[in-house]
Computed example of a mutant assay.
Amino acid sequence: MKVGARKETNVSNGQRKPDRTLEELDGQRWGEPPADATSLVRSVHGLRRRPVASLNAGELARLIRQGVGVRWLLPVALGILEDTAPNQAAGGFYDDDLLSAVLTCGSTTWAAQPELVKRMQEVLASLRDISPYLCDDVERFQRDTRRGR
């Protein structure tokens, strides 16, 4: 490894999870949240300073729902869903909060990253039992991404 090069960690589906923080990836330092900030704001500020590779599904969902770092987090979130969704039919667990956050990114996000649309469609195809609470999100994703073709 070259001096100063950033190490990355592999995940099981072959995707790369950067060991860099969102602050390093986007080049923006937000500083400390205001003293009267909500717990959500404090949490998002703190999560931006953690390496992306260390974020769990719930933390990824929180950031994605807030529209923070989606460019870097969406591929990581899809990697988690790709790893866990196929096991659902056998009684395995996938994170439906993460699925919901990813599905609701919005049509402009998906239009800008068509390779991720295919991955999301494959995740959805592998699920056998989608929560009724997510059906509207799934339908909206499918409708929005069909328009973008």
Rank of each mutant, 00 (worst) to 15 (best):
Arg149Phe: 01
Pro75Lys: 00
Arg42Glu: 13
Leu47Ala: 12
Gln15Tyr: 03
Ala101Pro: 10
Val11Thr: 08
Arg149Cys: 00
Gly46Val: 05
Leu63Arg: 01
Pro75Trp: 00
Thr109His: 10
Gln28Asp: 12
Leu124Gly: 13
Gln142Met: 08
Leu40Met: 10
Val138Asp: 04
Arg146Asn: 06
Gly91Ile: 02
Asp129His: 11
Ala5Cys: 02
Glu115Val: 04
Gly92Glu: 00
Ile80Arg: 08
Lys2Met: 14
Val76Pro: 03
Asp19Ala: 00
Ala112Ile: 09
Leu134Trp: 01
Pro132Val: 04
Glu139Asp: 04
Cys135Lys: 06
Pro132His: 06
Ala111Thr: 03
Ala90Leu: 07
Lys118Leu: 08
Gly106Ala: 09
Phe93Lys: 05
Arg16Thr: 13
Asp36His: 14
Thr145Phe: 08
Ser126Val: 00
Ala125His: 08
Leu22Met: 02
Ala61Gly: 09
Asp96His: 14
Ile130Met: 00
Ser43Ala: 15
Leu78Pro: 14
Arg71Pro: 00
Thr108Ser: 08
Leu47Thr: 06
Trp30His: 11
Thr9Ile: 15
Thr145Arg: 06
Lys7Glu: 09
Glu24Ser: 15
Pro18Glu: 15
Met1Pro: 14
Thr21Ser: 13
Phe141Ile: 11
Lys7Ala: 07
Gly14Pro: 05
Arg71Cys: 01
Gly27Arg: 01
Glu122Asn: 11
Arg119Pro: 09
Lys7Tyr: 06
Ala112Lys: 12
Phe141Ala: 07
Leu103Lys: 15
Ala89Thr: 15
Asp95Cys: 03
Ser131His: 03
Pro132Ser: 05
Thr104Met: 11
Pro132Asn: 07
Arg71His: 04
Asn87Cys: 05
Ala37Pro: 08
Arg140Trp: 11
Ala101Asp: 04
Lys118Ala: 09
Leu22Glu: 03
Arg49Ile: 02
Glu23Gly: 13
Thr21Leu: 06
Leu78Thr: 04
Lys17Pro: 03
Asp137Met: 08
Leu116Tyr: 07
Gln113Cys: 02
Glu122Ala: 13
Arg48Val: 10
Leu78Asp: 05
Leu60Pro: 14
Leu98Phe: 12
Cys135Gly: 02
Arg119Ala: 13
Leu127Asn: 09
Leu116Asp: 07
Leu99His: 13
Leu103Ile: 15
Ser54Arg: 15
Val102Tyr: 10
Ile130Leu: 02
Ala61Leu: 07
Leu116Phe: 05
Gln113Asp: 04
Arg48Asn: 12
Ile64Pro: 02
Arg16Trp: 03
Ser131Gln: 05
Arg29Gln: 11
Leu63Gln: 00
Leu127Lys: 08
Gly69Phe: 09
Asp19Gln: 01
Arg49Lys: 11
Leu98Arg: 12
Leu103His: 14
Leu22Asn: 02
Tyr94Thr: 12
Pro114Lys: 04
Arg50Met: 13
Gln121Asn: 08
Arg50Gln: 15
Ala77His: 01
Gly4Ile: 08
Asp137Arg: 15
Gly67Val: 14
Asp97Ser: 04
Thr84Arg: 03
Glu24Thr: 15
Leu78Met: 03
Ala85Ile: 07
Arg71Trp: 01
Thr104Pro: 02
Glu139Lys: 06
Val68Phe: 07
